[in-house]
Amino acid sequence: MADILSMPLPVLMGQITLGLVTGSFYALLGLGLSIVFGLLHVINFAHGAFYMLGALAAWMLAQFLGISYWPALLLAPLLVGLMGVLLEKTMVKQLYGRDPLYSLLLTLGIAMMLEYGLLWKYGSAGMAFAPPPELTGALNLGFMILPVYRGWIVLCSVVICLAVWTLVHRTPLGRQMRAATEKPELTGLFGINVPQLRSMTFGLGAALAALAGVLAAPIYQVSPIMGQSLLIPVFAVIVIGGMGSVHGTVLAAYGIGLAEGITRIVFPEAAALAVYVVMVAVLLLRPDHRQRRF
């Protein structure tokens, strides 16, 4: 604590901003994983690949079609979301009702095929993707310098998290998703097409991951394996937040992001461990917490 208090405010705020940016990616990725697990009981190891595909699609749209960042922010998640629907309808749904290990292995296989297939084509060296001119530079807030693009990521993530929460808790579609999560068999008998709902949910999860990928593209290099390093911490986040819980996932994502940022000041070597320490503590102290409803 003394270290934190003795730190110049701009440096502390800089670390907090970095923590919030990390938390934003955890939240966007965690939301998709969480709703897919909640409704489909699928531990989706292809989620990191969807994140990568979002970034790569934005890069390809710019590179080959001259489509700029703003349309790509919509188009890339849409394309990856449709691909998610296709994968669910052709492969993932074959394994419903079986042990979740089967779908975990299937999605891991899909991820490997996508990532290593694209690695063969594009190599592991990252490809640059520039942010739009209006989001470059930094804002002087008086107590800190805020890079505009990082501020945009946090803002965008908060808005998307609120939108997803509203979708799940305040719309007829969300009501159907919550009902189908709880009692899928019975929900069908209320005239709700549960198989279609599952496809849409898988597509939505993929689209959220792809959106995170487009947001990440200008600050990280676009690479076929960019999703691998993020996937495991995101799984830890959703375990901490309660698998299937929207607000639990978002709170855990930002909490862990901030914890990582602050740990980086106090004990930089342990920053990446923060998420796992909390996950182990949650699993040991509150094992029933790991699976919740929306």
């Binding site: 069908g188 008998l189 549960v194 198989p195």
Partner: peptide, 10 residues
């Protein structure tokens, strides 16, 4: 399928 039964009136 079950969701059609609801529309049939059961």
């Amino acid at each position: 399928p079950p969701h059609h039964l609801a529309r049939c009136g059961i």
